[in-house]
Design a protein around this nucleic acid. Structure first.
Lengths: 221, 221
DNA sequence: GTCTATATGCGGATAGAC
DNA sequence: GTCTATCCGCATATAGAC
């Protein structure tokens, strides 16, 4: 069946892109792993780049829909003061990890793909990738700025970046961290709550107005 | 002069690796940009992979030395209670950004290279890269666990990962964030202090023991 | 140390039979 | 939709003259 071939290609591509990277993976690797013919990729997807886009879309769309759905729920159920910081952060952070569990083995490597993509700084790529996040960022920026009113716009932008960074890094590395330190193993739920705790506290923190010169001098020297 | 050629290659490679990625960059791109002969790369470095290692080493060694030096200073100047959390975090976070300033234009893209490298999950690559960090992590783990004694080992490991993630993401994206939102522009010092505030608060946060079931249910639905 | 020329292989993509 | 065979360019790396 056609859609079976398509899905096998998507699964194999996801695996390889996550483990070794986009440019480092050849279509021959993918089709071999998927047990399909080499020409099938171009027949079904058109090009290697389009295949990457399809790999991302398949998982990212449900993840981002879920984020917005959670935020909608929070906003419709909270009073005039709006949802709490922690709730908003959880709405943003948890969907990738929840979905990963839901998808089981084949979805497991997707978080690594996402982690890689977050580090991609190629200009054209950014344009395409970021435009998918436009709405998401607007909604969450608005919600967060209500929850943390003492932050200016610039500070909020930066702290959201810090939050995304901690999440992206966790997505790509969680498997290896666990391998290095077995005591550090956490379930998806524990990972989410740890991350939510960390990011919420970071977002809420008051910026010290100035660093005492004496202290600074001593440290820097 | 030989070392001039070598440095021009390193500069050009750094630029390309940062802008487009390792696999996406060809030696032809690099040598053309550096105005040196194609064969010079293999003469001076041996291989493309060895060139990447050289690009990383040139900047990473001073950065990590500086981190350890700052930590040494803090520990020798603090009493029995050890340095404060914020000071330790700053000792870890600030050196890449300080060095970036020091190095000016040619060092500018290096942070993007570093950001990419942090997202690299290839197994062999990790072994090599992580082994360079072994000592660094041991030292900072020990210092942090004194400063945040209420955290268990597992929690501390995870939160250090969150800290590294926010830092790595900031390194690779700071330029673009500024482009998207000019009000968000920060000097290196301001970036450092923002990041330090965020990570310190995140590390210090108390983990809520349990999430009220009612709240959780409402959110998840 | 620097250059030209080239070995050698792998890459994405496609034409065209079935 | 699936397959084989092939086009064609670009990749890293090196041999060998200067």
């Amino acid at each position: 069946m056609a859609s079976d071939t398509k899905n096998r290609i998507l699964d194999a591509a996801e695996q390889q892109f996550g483990d070794r990277g986009f440019a480092e993976t050849s279509l021959r690797d993918i089709t071999k792993k998927a047990h399909v013919n080499l020409a099938a990729v171009n027949y079904h997807f058109g090009s290697k780049e389009a295949l990457l886009a399809a790999v991302l879309d398949r998982r990212l769309q449900p993840i981002n829909e879920r984020r917005l759905q959670l935020l909608d729920n929070l906003e419709s159920q909270s009073g005039n003061e709006g949802p709490s910081l922690r709730e908003i952060v959880r709405a943003f952070v948890s969907p990738p990890f929840e979905k990963q569990q839901e998808w089981g083995d084949t979805g497991q490597t997707f978080l690594r793909v996402l982690g890689r993509v977050h580090g991609e700084t190629n200009d054209e790529f950014r344009e395409v990738f970021m435009s998918e996040y436009e709405l998401l960022y607007q909604r969450f920026t608005a919600a967060l700025s209500r929850a943390v009113p003492h932050l200016g716009n610039a500070d909020l932008t930066w702290r959201m970046m810090f939050m995304v960074g901690s999440m992206a890094f966790t997505m790509s590395w969680s498997k290896s961290i666990v391998l290095r330190d077995p005591t550090a193993s956490l379930s998806a739920n524990e990972t989410i709550e740890s991350l939510v705790t960390f990011a919420s506290a970071g977002l809420a923190a008051e910026q010290p107005l100035e660093i005492p010169v004496e202290t600074r001098r001593r440290e820097v020297q």
